[in-house]
Simulated assay, not measured.
Amino acid sequence: MSLPFADRAEAGVLLAEMLVDTGLADPVVLALPRGGVAVAGPVAERLCAPLEVLVTRKIGHPAQPELGLGAVAEGGEPVFDLALLDRLRMTEEDLGPVVERERRELARRVAVYRGERSLPRLTGRDVVVVDDGLATGGTARAALRAVRSARPRRLVLAAPVGSPKTVTALRDEADEVVMLVTPPGFHAVGQWYKRFEQLSDADVLRLLGRGTGGWSPA
């Protein structure tokens, strides 16, 4: 496989072909916004499956928001990196204000992306959670646990690229993890894409066919 991928859409097409061979039955595709939506579009189209977003938010350090200490997904409880908290001599309670702030932002994004609609029925169905890449895996872990609580028949995590260590760790959270590549030189998701622009809420709505222009790759 030629790396880096041209963009998220190309990666999604390649990922879709791998997923076709996994024997999914009555699948639903849940994309982790924002970047995962651009990958999940071609996946849902190839699987003839409904596409929806599953909103997640990183829980950052109060003084260093870019340092992820956990994550929360809609419908689920916060998931923390307990080893990192221990090294920093912090507790889950220390992150209470951050969690509440991220829950508010999560609710805002759910309202923007879906309005009054709820998630599709997940119980008893094959659910494919799609992201554009797995670095630390914090948001993916929170998403998988939230989906698992809905009792799907089969839970699949799919992404074009990921850290080998993270992918191994997440195999305990999903029934199957489908990856195109797990390069040993992984440092960040963006290094494996030629085009890896940041997406806006408007981009997500466009990709979902809820903005102007309908679905198109990004």
Score class of each variant (00 low, 15 high):
residue 140 A to F: 12
residue 199 L to D: 05
residue 169 A to K: 09
residue 12 G to F: 03
residue 48 C to M: 02
residue 45 E to D: 08
residue 47 L to A: 01
residue 88 L to K: 11
residue 204 V to D: 14
residue 34 R to S: 04
residue 165 K to I: 07
residue 129 V to Y: 00
residue 128 V to I: 10
residue 126 D to W: 00
residue 19 L to I: 03
residue 17 E to L: 09
residue 100 E to Y: 00
residue 14 L to I: 03
residue 55 V to P: 03
residue 87 R to D: 15
residue 206 R to Y: 03
residue 102 E to G: 06
residue 208 L to W: 09
residue 163 S to A: 12
residue 54 L to I: 14
residue 102 E to Q: 15
residue 114 R to N: 09
residue 77 E to T: 12
residue 183 P to M: 01
residue 56 T to H: 02
residue 210 R to I: 06
residue 61 H to L: 04
residue 151 R to S: 13
residue 186 F to W: 06
residue 205 L to M: 12
residue 61 H to W: 10
residue 102 E to W: 00
residue 83 A to H: 13
residue 148 R to Q: 15
residue 172 D to C: 04
residue 144 L to A: 07
residue 25 A to M: 10
residue 2 S to G: 04
residue 165 K to E: 14
residue 43 V to G: 08
residue 11 A to E: 07
residue 68 G to Y: 15
residue 87 R to F: 15
residue 3 L to I: 06
residue 132 D to C: 06
residue 181 V to W: 04
residue 49 A to T: 05
residue 31 A to H: 11
residue 5 F to E: 07
residue 126 D to C: 02
residue 204 V to L: 10
residue 199 L to S: 08
residue 179 M to T: 13
residue 153 R to H: 12
residue 36 G to W: 03
residue 120 P to W: 05
residue 63 A to N: 05
residue 14 L to K: 11
residue 162 G to Q: 06
residue 173 E to F: 03
residue 60 G to A: 14
residue 112 V to N: 08
residue 145 R to W: 15
residue 136 T to L: 06
residue 164 P to D: 14
residue 25 A to T: 13
residue 20 V to Q: 15
residue 2 S to P: 08
residue 86 D to I: 00
residue 120 P to R: 12
residue 41 G to C: 03
residue 158 A to Y: 04
residue 32 L to H: 04
residue 107 A to M: 04
residue 139 T to M: 03
residue 39 V to Q: 12
residue 139 T to Q: 05
residue 57 R to S: 11
residue 2 S to H: 15
residue 19 L to V: 01
residue 63 A to F: 14
residue 20 V to G: 01
residue 106 L to M: 08
residue 200 S to C: 06
residue 191 Q to I: 05
residue 127 V to P: 06
residue 146 A to M: 08
residue 197 E to P: 00
residue 13 V to T: 14
residue 51 L to I: 05
residue 11 A to G: 12
residue 52 E to W: 12
residue 87 R to T: 14
residue 84 L to N: 08
residue 79 V to P: 00
residue 158 A to I: 01
residue 144 L to S: 02
residue 122 L to S: 09
residue 134 L to C: 14
residue 34 R to D: 00
residue 162 G to D: 08
residue 140 A to P: 01
residue 123 T to I: 02
residue 218 A to W: 14
residue 16 A to L: 03
residue 77 E to G: 12
residue 55 V to S: 02
residue 23 G to N: 11
residue 45 E to V: 10
residue 34 R to V: 07
residue 86 D to S: 08
residue 207 L to K: 03
residue 50 P to G: 06
residue 38 A to R: 00
residue 169 A to Q: 09
residue 5 F to M: 14
residue 84 L to R: 14
residue 96 G to A: 13
residue 118 S to D: 14
residue 155 L to W: 12
residue 164 P to W: 10
residue 34 R to K: 11
